[in-house]
Design a protein around this nucleic acid. Structure first.
Length: 219
DNA sequence: TTCCAGGCAATAC
DNA sequence: GTATTGCATGGA
């Protein structure tokens, strides 16, 4: 009998400890086990976001983090914070050129400026309601991983986030075929794990941390 | 210098 | 429906 997903989760947790995702600019807690930036993590505290400001910060962080190193995302968020631009209404007032200048370090800044402006409009129109997954996916610039990151970390919805690491690691371990689609993989995780947003938040963060360390005998 | 990092949309086949 | 390509910065 092979390992269960929960077995793998416990092994990763033993290896790396609680990860404290999603990092927030103004949260002073640090995770001393992190390899890269240590800012903003809050291990073992799942009571985030604390307010609308932090909720919005997570959402735009998820967009900025698309195919980009988190350290570069932090630079973009720092620049935005200096201009009080981590605010959907302020973002609406800025043009894409101006916004693009702030988020330059995160790469793809022209595309991402457009994505952020569209998302900020979407966010305002939600009026504090929890977005539906389909609504997010129909917003230009929001794909499945970004949508699920937003739902899991900004809204505490028990949705499992699948990324390239998840596909690589768990297909190698035999949990599914290499060519499995995003939705199939997500459903497999959600079906075989307790429906618990804290577990999902931690698991996804652990997968990313593990992938960065590239351990030989544990894909 | 090359390669990659917490993807997505557009286009080609 | 699946495969490929453009988007871009910064650090290793």
């Amino acid at each position: 009998m092979g390992k269960s997903l929960l077995d793998v989760y416990h092994e990763l947790y033993s290896l790396y400890g609680p990860q404290g995702w999603w990092p927030l600019l103004n949260h002073k807690g640090i995770n001393p086990t992190k390899t890269g930036s240590m800012r903003g993590y809050h291990p073992k505290d799942y009571d985030f976001p604390k307010n609308e400001r932090e909720k919005f910060e997570i959402c735009i962080g998820a967009i900025l983090a698309q195919n980009t190193n988190w350290v570069n995302v932090e630079k973009a968020l720092d620049n935005m914070q200096k201009e009080n631009a981590i605010d959907p209404k302020k973002m609406q007032k800025m043009d894409e050129k101006e916004l693009g200048l702030l988020i330059r370090p995160a790469g793809y800044f022209n595309q991402k400026a457009k994505k952020l402006k569209l998302f900020s409009k979407f966010f305002i129109e939600l009026e504090h309601r929890v977005p539906k997954r389909g609504e997010l996916l129909h917003t230009w610039g929001i794909g499945p991983e970004t949508a699920d990151s937003i739902l899991l970390y900004a809204y505490k919805e028990p949705i499992f986030v699948v990324d390239a690491y998840t596909k690589r690691i768990f297909s190698k371990m035999g949990f599914f075929e290499k060519g499995a689609k995003y939705e199939q993989i997500r459903e497999m995780f959600e079906k075989n794990l307790p429906k618990d947003y804290k577990l999902y938040q931690e698991f996804h963060a652990l997968i990313v941390e593990h992938a960065k360390n590239a351990v030989e005998n544990y894909p």
